[in-house]
Design a protein around this nucleic acid. Sequence first.
DNA 1: ACAATGTTGATAGACTTAATAGAGAAATAA
DNA 2: TTATTTCTCTATTAAGTCTATCAACATTGT
Lengths: 145, 145
Amino acid sequence: MRITYRGDYALKAVLDLALNEGRVVTIHELARRADIPIKFLEQVLLDLKRGGFVESRRGKIGGYLLSKPAAKIKLGEVARFIDGPIEPITCVEKNYSGCTDIYKCVFRAIWVEVALATSNIIDNVSFEDLANQVRSHKREFEYSI
Amino acid sequence: MRITYRGDYALKAVLDLALNEGRVVTIHELARRADIPIKFLEQVLLDLKRGGFVESRRGKIGGYLLSKPAAKIKLGEVARFIDGPIEPITCVEKNYSGCTDIYKCVFRAIWVEVALATSNIIDNVSFEDLANQVRSHKREFEYSI
DNA sequence: ACAATGTTGATAGACTTAATAGAGAAATAA
DNA sequence: TTATTTCTCTATTAAGTCTATCAACATTGT
């Protein structure tokens, strides 16, 4: 699995929306806070919308918001949707049909293990978890002033 | 981490050499057995040589062989050398110096976890292990005839 | 000398990625 | 209505990566 800029931006955007759950956030705010080229972010947000992760409102008081509770959006879902399969090699991905002698390949088993270990991590973290981490970190930071 | 064809070929070549430890194997043999385009394999083997994994012999009875016991070559070493860092995102790689606010980034911790889980798997498998798996599989297969 | 083998650098073609540009459509407020 | 603000969509560019191939060269054993 490799996270591209596109993926990184998508995750940051969703996290920002999670931190602002209930509000509608404009693309300008998102772009500024997360330091993302706005035109690139447009594409990413459209993708996220098509993926069912966010909704949008047009017009003067428009912007973006999560289409479901942050608690129900897993890091892994977004990462896979934007950057593709987490499997480290094609022969381990779903629906792969090359390799007639899959059962002979000693590497395949390793890559399956790696994929499972990865999904075990990223599919068990929700954006609510992440938002809470940010919030508690911010609190800590303010106390320390 | 993403394994390219280049990486896959490299791993298969090293495994073949591990299965033929003690012998010198020509690039033709390697290419045929592992079904790899020979000119591409040339590059890969040169890389592996520069990486200190294999040695070569020129001339009429030349070919390639492992430069150390298969037991001392870990899958992870070769994979990293050919396909680059296993970290899923740049900010987790060694010597990365962007992100002034690394400590604020909740994603980073996740990617570190993923990288650790991955290396935990691939750095604990040697090519001797893999070769033995192939051998025992072959034995099974022959019994079953 | 000859034949088999590895060595090297160059390059082509397809694909991917990051970023930018510009015209369009919908909602709101005055 | 009209102006403004916002999202929507399609194209395009520039750079980089990946797979594969080619041609010329160097080394070794017989």
